[in-house]
Design a protein around this nucleic acid. Structure first.
Lengths: 232, 232
DNA sequence: TGTCACGGTGACGAATCCGTCACATTTCAT
DNA sequence: ATGAAATGTGACGGATTCGTCACCGTGACA
């Protein structure tokens, strides 16, 4: 969850991006490309700026330069949007100062991924390809799961579901979130499908399936450390 | 130059390996197969472990499992040595977690080559879940490929194959390496299966399939930037 | 130019995967 | 205790995936 400022003149594009980002859990603020950008940045203190650089007017480049020149804003990461075919030397030179850039048309999903990448880089949160949770080890790179050191085959969906649960272990994942994270938001899969896959996962995990806990009325949870059963 | 820990009971073999490795510019440390392995690993922090798994006693397997179970050592690549004819189910199950294995007798040269291969592979591991290569963007986390910003569905194997090629783009991947990296060592898939999947990949990539280049007699290569066709 | 090995391609059958449904079981509020 | 809602479970069929094979095209080399 990060606050992101979108500087974009085309209202529909801005809205599309904004919608997508908020759906992914970010806070998106949109403003047009103009003189009011700097004040907005100072007021909002966004963690990242998406800047559409309208090349004809070069306004975007001016803004970008000013952002970099001002001590208060110089460290805010910027992702630059530019129309296709305008990846000129001007951009190429400028790009060195930007954290990333994207040419239109692009998918909102891709922008989101770039944003995630930049934020992760900036926050210095290294993304590890293996995640360890108690007896479990998830090897994302090879799509393998190890339980107590021995490998276990999962299907694509099972792996993704378990990964989602384990990334935030001991947290409650509600059904809607899980469906969105695993299947994507526009998927029309039935909510019961989730139950089926949970069941299949538990089956494959054997006794360790206990780690997947049902939160009735809400969703599911991966408990790395199981609560000890109460003594009788 | 990498620090390599050799766990081997037979002193002459250990010495042979050690000698050869140091001659090739590595730092080799030898210890016997026993309880002191884990402490040694933690103390030395080797970049790779060569583990002789004395099957009769199963000690090696215990050690290997412990290595994989411990967060501090789970990511250290391990090459397993085993006597010929002991490639049993036990090994087969275990092998999935190892990075490579070699049956005795073997030539020091071969071991060195395997070590180099593993180190090369491991060191190239980007801890970023998205990798960008020209017009392509691989999203490992979501197993998606973006071509010029639009998403493209790949199957598990296709994704893994392409990932392997793209991680070391512009390098030649020979058939044996690809088969091992994508399918695992013990897989008995025919070499032609690789061709079929290459074909399927190219198909899905459409015109951009050109980026997958055949190196006749050797293997395949992913070229991020295509060489411009010579003018007539 | 002819030969042959290597890689490209289309097809096919088996296996797996996956979404859905119906029914069973559990949980919770009343 | 009872009924409704949520979840567990087994089964089914369609879709996808995958490995293999036979045949074809092509490049390398003599």
């Amino acid at each position: 969850m990060s606050k992101i400022l979108i500087v974009e003149d085309e209202a529909d594009i801005a809205e599309l991006i904004s919608l997508h980002l908020s759906r992914e859990g970010h806070e998106a603020i949109c403003i047009g490309n103009g003189l009011q950008v700097m004040p907005a940045v100072l007021a909002q203190q966004p963690e990242l700026i998406v800047l559409d650089i309208m090349l004809p007017g070069l306004d975007g480049m001016q803004i970008f330069k000013r952002l970099r020149a001002d001590t208060r804003t110089a460290t805010i990461p910027v992702i630059i949007l530019t129309a296709k075919g305008q990846v000129t030397d001007k951009i190429a030179g400028l790009e060195l100062g930007a954290d990333d850039y994207l040419t239109k048309p692009f998918s909102p999903r891709e922008l989101y991924l770039r944003i995630s990448a930049v934020l992760r880089r900036v926050k210095k949160v290294t993304h590890v390809s293996e995640i360890q949770r108690g007896r479990f080890m998830l090897d994302r790179k090879n799509m393998k799961l190890f339980l107590d050191g021995s490998p276990l085959d999962l299907t694509t969906i099972e792996f993704k579901l378990l990964t989602t649960l384990m990334e935030n272990d001991n947290a409650v994942h509600n059904r809607a979130d899980l469906l969105r994270d695993v299947w994507g938001y526009n998927s029309d899969v039935a909510t019961r499908t989730l139950d089926t896959h949970i069941k299949r996962l538990r089956e494959k995990l054997g006794a360790a399936g206990d780690h997947i806990v049902t939160i009735r009325g809400t969703g599911f949870q991966f408990q790395t450390e199981l609560a000890a059963p109460l003594p009788a």
